[in-house]
Design a protein around this nucleic acid. Sequence first.
DNA 1: TTGTACGCGTTATCAG
DNA 2: CTGATAACGCGTACAA
Lengths: 356, 356
Amino acid sequence: MTVNGSHKNVTISDVARAAGVSKTTVSRYINGKYSLMSPETRERIAAVIEMSHYRPSSIAQSLKAKQSYQIGVVVADVSSPFSAALIRGIGHVLLENNYVALFADSKNSLELEQRLIQTLVSRKVDGLIVNTNSYYNPSLIQLACQGMPVVLCDRQVSDYNFPLVGSEQRQPILDVVAHLKEEGFHTAAFFTEEYAANSARFTRRNAFLEAMAFHYPDQDAQSLSFTVDISDQAGTIRAIEQLLGRCGSGNTPAIIGVNNVTTMHVVGAIRAMGLEIPRQVGICGPNDWGWDEQINWPVIVPPGITTFTVQSYEIGCTVAQVLLQRIQNPAAEKQEIRLPSELVVRGSTRLRAARV
Amino acid sequence: MTVNGSHKNVTISDVARAAGVSKTTVSRYINGKYSLMSPETRERIAAVIEMSHYRPSSIAQSLKAKQSYQIGVVVADVSSPFSAALIRGIGHVLLENNYVALFADSKNSLELEQRLIQTLVSRKVDGLIVNTNSYYNPSLIQLACQGMPVVLCDRQVSDYNFPLVGSEQRQPILDVVAHLKEEGFHTAAFFTEEYAANSARFTRRNAFLEAMAFHYPDQDAQSLSFTVDISDQAGTIRAIEQLLGRCGSGNTPAIIGVNNVTTMHVVGAIRAMGLEIPRQVGICGPNDWGWDEQINWPVIVPPGITTFTVQSYEIGCTVAQVLLQRIQNPAAEKQEIRLPSELVVRGSTRLRAARV
DNA sequence: TTGTACGCGTTATCAG
DNA sequence: CTGATAACGCGTACAA
C-alpha cells in the first residue's frame, strides 16, 4: 500500500479532489454538519477519508481557531508519587475534553521551571497548570497578568491571587499531632525540606507549630522542626540522634515528615540506625500515592506507616476542570479548592500497643 | 494563546508595523539572520519585540515547516516508577533538542492506547515513543508503514521490525536464578502478570524457564510460573501457599517478581501471611526506579529486597535520541538497544546468612 | 539591505 | 445543498 517512509500527508484538498467536492464540503463533513450536504456526498467523502486515512491537521485547525487545545503542565518532580497520580488525573480530564497536555518536569528547579514555561507559552498553550517551585514568583505573575490562564497545584505564590487546587494542609497536621499525644509519645518533631519558598511545606510547618502549642505546650516547637536534606542521610541521622538525646531515655518521640519523599527518607535513616519503630521512635507523614496505586508503601513497610491521605488523582482531575472553566470564562471568580485528608493509623505510631 | 479581551496577541505583522519594516525582516531577525539587515533595523526590531513581549507562534511555524517539533509519548502506566524515570529521561533529551513531549497514559489498556495514538497523530507529532500494551498490534504497524517514525520502549511487537530501546531481559534472570541456587533455596518460582501479550514479561518468563532447566533440572519449571493479578491479594496468597506446600517443610523457595509492581505486590502478600523473609520465603525482582530516586524501596523494606537494576532514566534518554535520529534520517537501519542490568543482592535472598 | 507575494491546511463568510 | 474566497501567522523564493 504505502511506499517507503516518504508518505505525503493527505490534506483536506486531496480528499476534496478525490471525492469531487470542494474543501468546504469536506470541512463540513469533518465537523459533523451533515445536514448541509446530500447523503450521497456524505457517503462519498466518508469513503475517501476511510481509504486515505485522512486526519485533519490540528495544527491548521489551531491556527484558524486561535486555540491550540493544548495545556501546559509543569510539575516540580515527576518521580514523586504525587506527580504521577496528578498527571493521571489531569490527563483523564483533558482527554475527555479533547485537550492534550504538554507535560514538563522542572526537577525542583525554579530556573528550569521558568525556562519550561517560556517554551510552553511560545507553543501557545491555552493554559497552564503549575506545581511551582517558588513562593516568590514574579515571572508567573507577569504571565497571568498578560492574560494566560494559570491554575496552581498545591503550592501558592505570594502577592497574587492565583486559583489553586490542592490538599488540605492544616487540619491533617493538627489531627496527627493529637493522635501522637494520645498514643503517649513524649513529643513530636517535624522533619521538612527547605520550606521558605514552598507554601505547602510552610503551611504544614506552621500547622505543626500551632498543634504543638496546643498539645505539647511545654515543648519548644521551633527547635523541634528540623530542616533536612533528603540527599544527606548522615545529616538526617544526626538530627534524629539529637531528637532522641533531648527526649532522654525511656521517652519516645515521633517524627512527622513534611511529605512523602521526606518521610521515606527518614524511615531509611531510622532503619540505618537500627531503631525499632514505634518503640524507640514513631514516624508518620502524608501519603501522596493515588488511591488506585498498586505499590502501597505505607502498608508494605513494617510495621505499617501511619499516614494522612492526599487525594492526588482527584486533585489532578479538579485542577484540570478548574483550568478549562477558566479558559472558557476568564472573568470567573478565582477559587482556592482544598481536598480533604484522612488520618490512617498504622503500626508506626501505635506506641501503646507496642509497649504492652 | 488566550485572548482575554485585555491583551490581543501580538503577531509578526504588528512587530513589523511598529518597527517600520516588513514581516520578512522581522522573520529574519527571529531566525538570527542578522547579516541580512542593518544594525539599526536590528536594534529597532529588538526594541519592539522586547517591549511587546512578542513570541513567534510555533503553531504557524509548524504549519509552514511541516514539522511540529512535538513528540508523542504513550506509556502503559504513569504510576509505575519505570514510567516516571522514563519520562524524565525523555523530557531531558527533548528539551535539549527543542522538542516538546505530548505525554499520555494508556492505563494498561490497548484500546485507550490506540485512541491516544490517534489523537497524537492528528496533532501531527513528528514521531512516537510507545511503551505498548500489546504484542499483537496491527494498528501500530500500519502507522509505521505510513511513515510515522516510531520507537518502542521495552516491549516489542510481533511481525514488524520496530526500533526498540529497553533493558536486557534474559541475562539478569539467569543471574538471579544462579544466585538463588547458590544461596541454597530449594527452588525458585516466577510470579508474573498476564504475559502473553507483553514481550518483556514473556521474555523474562522464558529466561526463567531456561535458567531453571540449567540450575534446577529436577524441578518442573512450567508449574513454578504463577500468573497473578495484582489487584487480588487473596489469589496471590493462595499461590504462595501452594508453592510452600510443594516444597515441604524445612525447604525454602524464592520468588522472582516479573516487574517492580508485581514484586511489591508479592511482598505485601508475604507480609500479610506473616512469613519471615528470607527464612521462610525469598523474594526478588527488577528495580525500575531511576538511579537518582529518593524513595529507594528495596533498601527501605526490611530486610532489603534483592533486585536487578533497570536503567529507566537512561532508557528514556536513549529512546528519545534514537527517535530524533530516525526523524532526521528515516532510512537509517533499525536497531534494538538493550541496556545492561546489574544484580544487587540484599537481605531478602541471603538465605545462608539467615540460617546461621 | 529590504520588501512583495504566495502557500502551509483549515474554517467562516458569503454567494449561488 | 454547494462552492469560491479570504483569512489565521509565519517563512521564503524572488525581486528591487
